[in-house]
């Protein structure tokens, strides 16, 4: 299991998009069972993985996430009948797109964790954290975010000064 005292040079930011009924409950179970895992992950709860728009993943990378996890109910177990199937299709296509624009797919994990699988949640989160830690920070999208700011808003005193000088 992950040792919390070990110091690392780089602590990745991991965002997890999970469904309420299976994975969120599975993560709750990991808590009630007092399992330990790296504290890098931040969980966002959705009713269903079907609700997760790929834009959120892009947004997360843009906001500084180094790894993103999407997790829901096992196929056939969806609380909303078929939401996870729609999610699976959507992400299969979306991964291709990410690959095309040059994102290392190791940064995006997709898994099924049921409400009874606290251990699997720990495993999935730990694996992704360690993998992304080895890969180092994700810079591409943060640079993009900066570019966006260049074209839009003047938000540093240096820029303001330069602007005023014109």
């Amino acid at each position: 299991m992950h040792s919390e005292n070990q110091k690392h040079d780089f602590e990745p930011k991991i965002i997890a998009f999970v469904c309420t009924w299976c994975t969120y409950a599975g993560a709750d179970l990991a808590g009630t069972s007092r399992m330990q895992y790296p504290s890098n992950v931040r969980v966002l709860k959705f009713p269903c993985t079907g609700r997760i728009d790929p834009v959120f993943i892009l947004k997360a990378f843009q906001q500084g996430a180094d790894g993103v996890l999407v997790s829901g109910c096992h196929p056939g177990d969806c609380h909303y009948i078929a939401g996870n199937f729609h999610a699976r299709r959507r992400f299969a296509a979306f991964r291709k797109l990410l690959e095309f624009i040059g994102v290392d797919l190791g940064r995006l994990a997709f898994s099924w964790v049921s409400a009874a699988e606290g251990g699997k949640w720990v495993e999935v989160v730990t694996d992704l954290t360690e993998k992304v830690r080895a890969m180092g920070p994700m810079v591409e999208f943060k640079d993009l975010a900066l570019e966006e700011q260049w074209s839009g808003v003047i938000n540093t005193p240096e820029l303001q000064e330069a602007y005023d000088a014109i």
Binding site: E4, D28, G31, R34, Q36, Y37, S39, V43
Partner: peptide, 24 residues
């Protein structure tokens, strides 16, 4: 904000857990 099952119960390091709780 879930700072028990998703934070205090799964992390032992007080500093890390506190930072995560603030984020959550």
């Amino acid at each position: 904000a879930n700072i028990r099952e998703h934070c205090s119960w799964v992390h032992e390091n007080r500093e890390e857990a506190t930072v995560k709780a603030i984020d959550i």
